[in-house]
Simulated scan of single mutants.
Amino acid sequence: MLARAAWQPLGMRQPMNCFGRTLVVRGGSKLYAGNLHTTAAVRTSDKPEEEAKPVDMPAARVDPTLPGQSLTLMKKIKAYLAFYKTGVKELWGNMKAVDGIDSRISAGEIVSRAEFQIYLRNPADRLRVVPFGLLLIVLPEAIPLLLALFPGMCPSTCITYGAIVKMAAKRDAARQNLHVAALQRIEKAGLEPSDFGTAEDLARAAGRGNSIFQLEQLDAANVRLLCRFLGIGGVFSGLFVGQLRSGLRRRLDNIAIDDAMLAREQLVEQLELAELLRACQERGIPSTQLSEPQLRESLGKWVELTQAHARTIGMMPIAWSRLALLDRSVENNLAR
């Protein structure tokens, strides 16, 4: 219900307002009730006659794993600690803001993409904040090592770019095997990779009503395949196909909403590198071997495709196109 409510106002272009205060977006992309990872908020004064002044700005921090940096060991240790401490503070702000965001989404009000991401990531972050916070207090020096071994224990605001790259590399390697399996599934369903080459081909294939494009008609093997490709579910999730089916539906709905927000706010060229990589990974776009411009181009093509055809073709055929093509994108002929 929340996803549908959030979807309805996406075409509107009204000024954002949260907690009675206008939100001013810095850099045209990010901002927000509470602070999302590596973003900063600027709120205008409640009194219109006063000049707007920045308030509640988070301390500047450096992600020590971003490319192009040269830090000494001591500076790198300090940068890690500053990064994690500020991340925990941002997470706390997000947790305080999420109830208001939830209420506005339920009411069908417009929200920013960053607010929507806070809303999506909050449930998992709540489970991780206490153990991670205790670790930060008791043994902060061990956090990088522990996160390398157990990346899932880290809240979203505390994940470094380097950690995202490592997780992406593992997923991309697994997706190569899933791609081979998907081609066999597609052939068994009476389709060919050429059916996914262009948006026009994809529309024709989807129009034939193949059961592979119908979520409720997908067999257990195909549900597991799609979920593994999109990174849905945990170690034991393969035992619960019903839960995986529900998780797949939520993921595709949330990606459709996120795509509309990326298009509406024109964010593809403005996302920070870590957030860009995360967005590509959530859509099954191979990313670890791509440069930043290639990542932006890939995400941009995906968004163009979904905005032109998601409501007519559906998200399921588009998801299958990623499995079928993997390293290539659908040529969006119908958008011209």
Rank of each mutant, 00 (worst) to 15 (best):
G11Y: 04
M12F: 13
R26M: 11
G28S: 10
G28T: 04
A40Y: 03
T44W: 06
E49C: 12
P54F: 05
D56E: 14
L66R: 12
P67E: 12
A79E: 06
F83A: 09
K85L: 06
K85M: 04
G87Y: 04
N94Q: 10
M95N: 07
A97T: 04
Q117M: 03
A124T: 00
P131L: 06
L134E: 14
L134R: 10
V138G: 11
L139R: 10
L147N: 13
L149F: 12
Y161P: 15
G162M: 04
I164P: 14
M167G: 15
A168I: 11
R175D: 15
H179L: 03
L183Y: 05
R185W: 03
E187A: 13
S194W: 08
R204A: 12
F213K: 01
A220D: 14
A221T: 09
R228P: 09
L239K: 05
F240D: 14
S246M: 09
S246W: 00
G247S: 04
R249T: 01
R249I: 02
N254W: 13
A256P: 04
I257L: 12
D258P: 01
D259P: 11
Q270G: 07
Q270D: 11
E272P: 14
A279L: 05
C280I: 08
Q294P: 03
Q294R: 00
S298D: 15
K301Y: 09
H309S: 14
G314Y: 01
M316D: 14
I318P: 08
R322E: 15
L323R: 00
L325G: 05
D327R: 02
V330A: 07
